[in-house]
Simulated assay, not measured.
Amino acid sequence: MNENAFWQLIDDCTPSTSDPDAEQLAATLTSRLSAGPLATVIAFAEQLSWALYRLDRKEYGHDLSSDSFLYTRAAIVAAGRETYEATLRDPQLFAPYARDLIWAESLLYVPDEAYRRITGDEWDRNTRYSYESYSNTAGWADA
């Protein structure tokens, strides 16, 4: 799954009604990924981790706890490619999500749940990039 396919999947699974905590999005993504090959689940996990890693920078999360920062970054991803890319260009767009505690924690569990549904096992996954807060050392240089 390349970046375009990742964002298309997010777009395809975004509900047409309000979904403030991305619960519906996460459920639809999990169902969609569970119906496909395991390789797609793994590729989705990689793309999700990369997207979250790219937002792991001091200009976004300097005043947030690690969990709040992670869940807020997930909300930016859940908002879709346009919002995500705009936020990468303009860190001020992150502020309302952080201020209003707009979170999408459920998005983080999508790959693990899809993996469990396909294999019946828990996934002890490691992705190329860590999505944990403050793991992007280049993003926090001079912090």
Rank of each mutant, 00 (worst) to 15 (best):
P15A: 05
C13S: 15
S135Y: 06
S133A: 15
A141Y: 10
Y53F: 15
P37V: 03
Q24W: 01
V110E: 00
A75L: 04
L33G: 09
D12W: 07
W123C: 03
K58G: 11
N126G: 05
S135I: 00
A26Y: 01
G139N: 01
G80D: 13
A51R: 10
F94I: 05
S133L: 01
A95W: 06
Y60C: 06
D19C: 01
Y131L: 14
R81P: 00
Q92C: 08
A79L: 10
L33A: 08
R116I: 11
F69M: 06
A75P: 10
R57N: 07
L70M: 13
L9E: 14
T40Y: 01
D56G: 07
A104P: 10
E59Q: 12
R32L: 04
L107G: 03
S65V: 04
A114V: 10
L107Y: 07
D21F: 07
A143Y: 08
E3I: 00
A26R: 10
Q92S: 15
P15W: 02
E46H: 03
S34L: 08
P91L: 02
E46D: 12
R81F: 00
G120V: 13
F6N: 06
A75E: 08
S68C: 06
N126M: 09
R125Q: 05
E122Y: 12
E113F: 04
F6D: 06
N4F: 00
S106H: 13
I76T: 11
I118P: 07
N136I: 07
Q8S: 11
E46G: 04
D11A: 08
S16N: 06
A138D: 14
S66H: 09
A5C: 03
R116P: 03
V110F: 00
N136Y: 10
A51S: 15
E113H: 12
S68L: 07
C13T: 10
Y53L: 01
T30D: 01
D67N: 13
S65W: 15
A22D: 05
G36R: 14
L52E: 04
L88Q: 13
D112T: 08
S68E: 15
L88H: 13
H62I: 05
S133C: 13
Y134G: 02
R32W: 05
R89T: 08
A98K: 00
W123A: 00
E122M: 08
F94T: 07
W103N: 15
D124E: 15
L48K: 01
V110N: 02
A104V: 02
S16E: 09
D12H: 12
F94A: 10
R54L: 13
Y97C: 05
S16Y: 12
S66C: 10
P20Q: 01
R125T: 06
A98G: 13
N136L: 03
P15E: 00
R128I: 04
E59L: 00
E23Q: 11
A143P: 01
D124S: 11
T30A: 11
V77G: 11
T87A: 13
A78S: 12
G120F: 14
T127L: 09
R57Y: 05
D56F: 06
P37H: 10
R99Y: 12
R116V: 08
F69R: 02
T17G: 06
A22W: 02
I10D: 03
A138F: 03
Y134M: 12
E23W: 07
R73G: 11
W50E: 15
